[in-house]
Design a binder for these strands. Structure first.
Length: 594
DNA sequence: GGGCTGTACTG
DNA sequence: CAGTAC
DNA sequence: GCCC
């Protein structure tokens, strides 16, 4: 039997099953899927199982590719056979509203909600294809929709993934979700709400499933509300928007850039300043990184001092440097800053728990290399944490493929749920932002309280258990209070006994703080600083516990708070964005780092 | 001249 | 408290 | 470093 023949047959199968399945479990409802297993002539067992699965989850298996009907192309194979099955000559002929995704996108629905399509893009060239780009009318009406059950998710051929970005990952990896983030993000708030609602058909087991849905609904109903409800004089509001906060605008492009030459030189200079000791240098780095970010997003090639100067964040000094780069192709300041200490300091700071101060102390004691440090040259001493930092120097300074973070998390999550099945436990950080590789694993833990219970004590049990199972191998910093609702843990972990050590952070927060915590632990760093800065400039204060108002600050020292103020938002990310008048951005859109 | 995020852990 | 990390 |  051919795949189209079987697809046609699937449409009539499972109807009784579909009729008695709760609609919330049918996460493929309204999805018209054209599936390509690889063999065009014969529907293999795997292909048949997969088509069955789609149907059982409420999806429609479309027998013939018709772009006006199909909402998603799911492929387990490479471009050539895929195109053959579609009867097309080039991938570019597929409309932008039809994503080409891997099978893993389908099975991601098993975890409570379908993940973003770009996270499972089968071909990097079509990573921006997005079903939310489809005009909302005239679609998906032709086919009946219903149904559900369970079936094993298939294994995916990941050789189709463009894994240029993480060469250390063998192409035999079975984790196709390690696709790179999209180069540009076209999402906007109205589409986002649609995204969110299409993703909230979680199993009852996910305590936050409804929270995501509610948050999305909140946002929708609040769209027209003016955020400045009388608190603030109008002219001040205007002034703020003129200033422009880094958290407000998405990065427009990550690809090649017209000002790459300038960027390279400024970046080189910035890297040198990073290794210097003074506060002055620290702020220079802050400033350069802002300039570089602006240049990355700058649509035209800069050819003059004036043009450079016109960019927000570029002052006289930097504009002069840019001018020099344009005219000579060089930047003399780079050689000037390339002092002999830079290399040593950089290496020392690569040790966990070694910052500028310690690095210079060691340098002044006569250390120049890591071996000098290991030999305690000059009589230097190391803290216990620093010793761990030295021992696992290479591990800690390398990134792991997204799939490894996922695998480690998949070991930890069941252990946590065994302690308390009501826990909310998710990976945050760069993983949540969809990065193809992760520097560490950030795990957020909380628990709904409507049954009168909390997650107090869970952190202690979980850490104990993870130590026993040798998943966590070293502690770097342990919580002040192991039994509270709030806890911060930092350590090293590993997937199995022959894997590298990986940095892991486990954070627990009270349930009411989950939105603020989600926001903070998702980052990225620069986005966080920017949104906190904006909050501060609007008279609020934002931290991982919530957005606070009426915070009285010491007039002599603005950073000192005299009163805590009171929480005005903390349960959802959406309400915090809304109050701060920051356009909604999905985690993968919150990337600001250069 | 002062701000450029705000907090937790370590010794 | 200073230093470090996120 | 930049901005106020």
């Amino acid at each position: 039997m051919t795949p189209p023949e079987y697809a046609a047959k699937v449409l009539t199968k499972f109807q009784p099953l579909l009729d008695r399945t709760p609609p919330r479990k049918l996460f493929l409802k309204d999805k018209n899927i054209f599936y390509i297993g690889g063999d065009l002539k014969f529907a293999s067992k795997t292909t048949r199982d997969k088509m069955d699965f789609v149907r059982k989850k409420g999806g429609t298996v479309v027998p013939v590719y018709d772009p006006s009907i199909v909402t998603h192309i799911v492929t387990d194979t490479t471009p050539i056979p895929t195109l053959k099955a579609l009867a097309l000559k080039s991938l570019t002929e597929i409309p932008d509203h039809i994503p080409t995704v891997l099978w893993s996108w389908i099975t991601s629905g098993n975890r409570g909600k379908l993940e973003f399509e770009w996270m499972h893009a089968a071909f990097s060239s079509r990573i921006d294809a997005d079903s939310s780009k489809r005009s909302s009318k005239g679609k998906e009406a032709q086919f009946p929709r219903q149904v559900a059950g369970t079936v094993s998710g298939g294994v995916t051929n990941s050789s189709v993934i463009d894994d240029d970005h993480h060469p250390q990952t063998p192409s035999s990896s079975l984790h196709p979700s390690s696709a790179a983030p999209p180069f540009s993000s076209a999402a906007n708030p109205p589409q986002r709400t649609r995204h969110a609602s299409q993703q909230c058909n979680g199993p009852e087991g996910d305590p936050l499933a409804e929270y995501y849905a509610l948050a999305a609904a909140d946002q929708e109903s609040a769209e027209s509300n003016d955020s400045s409800d009388g608190e603030m004089p109008m002219d001040e509001v205007v002034k703020q928007s003129r200033r422009g906060f880094t958290c407000d605008q998405r990065n427009t492009d990550n690809g090649h850039c017209l000002n790459q030459g300038i960027i390279d030189k400024l970046q080189e200079l910035m890297e040198l300043h990073k290794e210097k000791l003074s506060d002055h240098d620290r702020w220079r780095v802050f400033s350069y990184s802002k300039t570089i970010r602006a240049l990355r997003n700058h649509p035209v090639q800069i050819k003059s001092y004036e043009q450079a100067r016109a960019i927000k964040g570029v002052g006289d000094k930097t504009a002069r440097k840019i001018e020099e780069i344009i005219q000579t192709g060089e930047l003399r300041r780079i050689d000037w800053e390339k002092t002999p200490d830079v290399e040593s300091i950089k290496n020392f700071k690569g040790i966990y728990d070694v910052g500028p101060h310690t690095a210079y102390q060691w340098y002044n004691a006569g250390c120049r290399t890591l071996d000098d440090v290991k030999a305690r040259k000059g009589g230097i001493t190391l803290t216990p944490t620093q010793k761990i930092g030295v021992e696992y120097y290479d591990d800690i300074n390398s990134r792991m493929p997204r799939s490894e973070a996922e695998q480690i998390f998949n070991k930890i999550k069941p252990i946590a749920l065994e302690i308390d099945p009501m826990l909310f436990i998710e990976i945050m950080g760069s993983f949540r932002r969809g990065k193809a590789d992760c520097g560490d694993i950030d795990i957020l833990i909380t628990r709904p309280t409507h049954d009168g219970k909390t997650h107090a004590g869970v952190i202690r049990s979980l850490l104990t258990e993870l130590h026993v199972r040798q998943i966590i191998t070293e502690d770097l910093a342990t919580p002040d209070n192991f039994d509270g609702l709030e806890a911060t843990y930092r350590g090293l972990c590993r997937l199995d006994f022959r894997s590298r050590r990986r940095r892991i952070d486990i954070l627990a927060v009270p349930y009411e703080s989950r939105g603020a915590a989600l926001l903070y632990y998702t980052g990225d760093d620069i986005f966080n600083r920017a949104i906190r800065y904006k909050a501060g400039s609007m008279g609020y204060s934002l931290n991982q516990r919530g957005l606070f108002t009426a915070v009285a600050r010491d007039p002599n020292d603005r950073r000192k708070k005299l009163t805590k103020g009171y929480v005005i938002a903390s349960e959802t990310e959406e309400e915090i964005f809304k109050i701060l008048n920051v356009p909604w951005q999905e985690p993968h859109e919150r990337v600001r780092a250069v």
